[in-house]
């Protein structure tokens, strides 16, 4: 008779109960083996004593003392987003969006800075505020495109002049070989421009930072 096997059965039985067949086998063994019976009795006494360990109650005023230790503004201690009402969250999102788009949008309202483009890479202009001047005696061999400014032609433009949201003055000394067309830019174009300007600003800023 192997007691080792029955010791294991006793432990299993005390922990979770045994199915009928091994239980009968164990009981049969316990009737015969005094050592195993004592072992069983000891273990069950031990478990009984352990389970009987009285629960100690927390001292009076435990919860009150604890609540006093919590940060005063309960909501503030919670993660920031969870106590926000959905309405505030929507308002916040809209505010963020406005800030994000705000810089290009102002171009719609404010007059943007003037830009001049020319197909003549050697073209030289004099720029005073928003007035772009083709100096007297200068020859621009190509088209000129001006956005949001005023073109003052003192020299020669050997090409067309496109004016987008811009005006122009042709002085007596100035000549334009091609045509002059004036386009009023739509808000979408202005917006596109604004974004483009910001992108370029950002690029040059990054480049500057690299240097």
């Amino acid at each position: 008779m192997d007691c080792r096997k029955y010791r294991v059965l006793i432990e299993v039985h005390l922990e979770s109960g045994l199915p009928k067949v091994p239980l009968l086998e164990l009981e049969h063994h316990l009737n015969v083996c005094l050592c195993c019976r004592r072992y069983r009795d000891e273990l069950s006494r031990l478990e009984e004593a352990l389970q009987d360990c009285p629960q100690v109650r927390a001292p009076h005023g435990f919860t009150e003392a604890l609540l006093k230790k919590l940060p005063k503004n309960y909501a503030k201690a919670m993660p920031r987003y969870s106590y926000l009402s959905p309405r505030i969250r929507v308002v916040g999102a809209v505010a963020a969006l406005v800030l994000l788009l705000g810089s290009p949008l102002y171009i719609l309202v404010e007059s943007p800075r003037p830009i001049v483009e020319s197909s003549d890479l050697n073209a030289q202009f004099t720029i005073i505020d928003s007035t772009i001047i083709v100096p007297e005696g200068a020859i621009i061999s190509g088209d000129i495109r001006v956005y949001h400014g005023h073109l003052k032609i003192l020299g020669t433009v050997d090409g067309n002049v496109h004016l987008v949201s811009s005006g122009y003055t042709l002085e007596s000394s100035g000549t334009v070989a091609g045509s002059v067309d004036v386009v009023k830019s739509s808000w979408l174009e202005r917006l596109k421009f604004g974004i483009d300007q910001i992108r370029q600003d950002a690029k040059s800023y990054v480049r500057g930072a690299w240097k």
């Binding site: 100690v56 001292p59 919860t63 609540l67 919590l70 919670m78 106590y83």
Partner: peptide, 26 residues
């Protein structure tokens, strides 16, 4: 409690304080 209800948290403490205190005492 997660939504900021102090009473709910206090109730949670009340429910578990004896168990936790007892465990720690032992």
């Amino acid at each position: 409690a997660k939504q900021g209800d102090t009473h709910a948290f206090a109730e949670l403490v009340e429910t578990y304080k004896d168990k936790i205190y007892s465990f720690l005492y032992r």
